[in-house]
Design a protein around this nucleic acid. Structure first.
Lengths: 247, 247
DNA sequence: CGAATAGTGTCTGTGAGACAGTATCGC
DNA sequence: GCGATACTGTCTCACAGACACTATTCG
């Protein structure tokens, strides 16, 4: 069909084509830590970066994938069982040198998923959940360290003014759980009262019945109203970084 | 593995490769309007979308371009003479159907440039500056209407909390000029006092001597401290959209 | 002098954060 | 009752916007 020399009415140019891949940065919160899913590359020496940890991803399959987002969803489904996670495009990287196999581009997506029910199940498939700061210190395949850093920065940045952490929780969840998730991602404690005011004012939560914890008063459970997009808050958390030195 | 082009140790897989292109959305403010640069595609029937308006762009040249950003800068240089504009990646689009020539991806960058000294000069090269709302109503080639819409949304969104509009002006510029630029991009008037406070507090401007206008008091000229990145304000402009109906 | 534009001072409402108080649960 | 957790009320301070004021330039 769209082969390089197809004699259709509109001809594709005879340029050499770069490789086209898709990678997915998959975040979750597990054991009170922000973690990212990494896979170990095959040991075969014919493979680039054998044995290294890398972001899950691979080549776009022109026959299987209708679009880039489709391809990302396929990769995500292959690695995790998740069907309706939060998926957003992070950006693309491409250069002559980032892949020893040739001029290579990657379209990077970033996904937020609730913690896997059985975290061991995945380790078997040569993939592991790794705490992000530890992951950032590792030597990853390709330029994946740079990509991961960009993803973490984007996540932390957007968490300051969006409802993104809600996608890291299994529904229904409670506001204290959600606050804990914010605190884990941002690495700083937050005020309960201000937090609740902000979440409830943003109109993105749906009440879903009371949930009893291990101890103390039961809490209201919530679901996300629109799983397609995150809510955007009118202001960022903590606009001033610290009671600054005013000379 | 059998690879026809790569005799190296690591072989490239034999997948069919999508087409890889780069497009650039170039914004400027001209005649008190936000405009975007569009090019008219050749009339030849062997070309997709002959005669249609499109974003400037084209295929990645594996021999000329070291990276995607390089390619974007090359396209930008070919269309405008600008050397140091603001350039940021917008995202990537790719699917089996967006280009009649086959499975095609595009990496889209968005650039902010000062108004061209001679706006006629460019029209000669089959490219024109078109007011964005008019451009959004036109039937553009490929999925460029969708891409342009995303670019305008990103621009307007970021203008609310960043110094991006400063890159739309020739240096040095004055604060009233900068305010006017904000107002043009956002389509709404802003308060002078609040605007100045915000700009000066953000510490991204460098004083560059007084500039006399056509009438009235001369104004202080400014340059951008760091042309590589935009300043981010701690708060967004007008966090509340309107004195809302409180039930 | 007045017109035009640049730049500053002052007031006020809003709202986020701090923190203390109240409510509800299991035992 | 008590401990533990969920939730709410109140106070305060910062700051963005509104708007009126002063400053500088030109003719």
């Amino acid at each position: 069909m769209a082969s390089q020399r197809s004699p259709s009415r509109v001809a594709a140019p005879d340029f050499e084509r770069p490789l086209v891949t898709v990678d997915v940065v998959i975040f979750t919160v597990l054991d009170e830590q922000l973690k990212v899913l990494l896979v170990r590359r095959p040991e075969a020496a014919t493979d680039p970066f054998p044995g290294r940890l890398a972001l899950p991803g691979g080549f776009v399959n022109v026959d299987l994938d209708a679009s880039l987002a489709d391809c990302a969803l396929r990769k995500l489904g292959e690695k995790t069982g998740f069907s309706a996670p939060y998926l957003e495009q992070l950006g693309s990287w491409g250069s002559a040198t980032r892949d020893p196999r040739g001029w290579c581009t990657t379209h990077v997506y970033f996904a937020l998923v609730p913690p896997p029910a059985d975290s061991e199940e995945m380790a078997s498939a040569a993939s592991e959940w790794i705490e992000v700061n530890a992951a950032l210190r590792k030597r990853l395949a390709f330029d994946h360290a740079e990509i991961l850093a960009a993803a973490v920065e984007r996540l932390r940045g957007k968490v300051e003014y969006t409802s993104l952490p809600a996608f890291l929780l299994e529904e229904p969840f409670t506001l204290p759980q959600l606050q804990r998730t914010y605190e884990i991602v941002l690495g700083r404690p937050m005020d309960k009262s201000a937090f609740r005011k902000r979440m409830l004012d943003a109109q993105f939560l749906l009440e879903a019945g009371s949930i009893a914890g291990d101890a103390g008063r039961a809490a209201m459970g919530y679901r996300i109203l629109d799983r397609e997009r995150a809510a955007v808050f009118p202001r960022t958390f903590r606009s001033v970084e610290s009671p600054a030195s005013k000379e």
